[in-house]
Amino acid sequence: VRKKLPKPSQEGGGRKLGPENIIGETSDVEDLFKEEEDYKEENNYSTETSGTLKWKEDLSRKAAEAFLRQQQATPNLRKLIYGTVTEDNEEDGGDPREEIGGLFHISQPDRECKHKADSLDCSKFLVEAPHDWDLEEVMNSIRDCFVTGKWEEDKDAAKILAEDEE
């Protein structure tokens, strides 16, 4: 199956049609088999000549995709903090007012940022989703924050003492 991957565009087209037609008509099934044979030949051909190059091309593309995926998964704090500043200011500057009959303007329901602007000024960071501290695994998640927990190799008093004695 893996060998087919480098050529997804052609094969994808053939496959999509496949399952619908298989049910009634045998000729289509035969066609499918033929197509698959064609692919095998093609694949063999490619591995013999420019196989290594293709593998490399694919790798760089995959790496780029993986990088992008990771970028999206881990929030870019810098962009989150500083990137939105300009947007906020722009929103304040432009007043998108809808007027009715040139006299009244519709008061827009408060958007999230507007709501935030008049909320409580407090520095406390409230815990939104508290852990269940009765569970053993949750308790273990902070075990090494205490002196009673496991120490790093270079800071473990017992290890350092043992080394000194040697």
Binding site: S123, K124, F125, V127, P130, H131, W133, M139, S141, I142, C145
Partner: peptide, 19 residues
């Protein structure tokens, strides 16, 4: 339990004093 939450968050500065 709130103290344990704060320890879970961790860091060298308490969450109220970050700023």
């Amino acid at each position: 339990k709130l103290l344990l939450e704060e320890i879970y968050r961790g860091g060298c500065v308490d969450s109220t004093n970050q700023s």
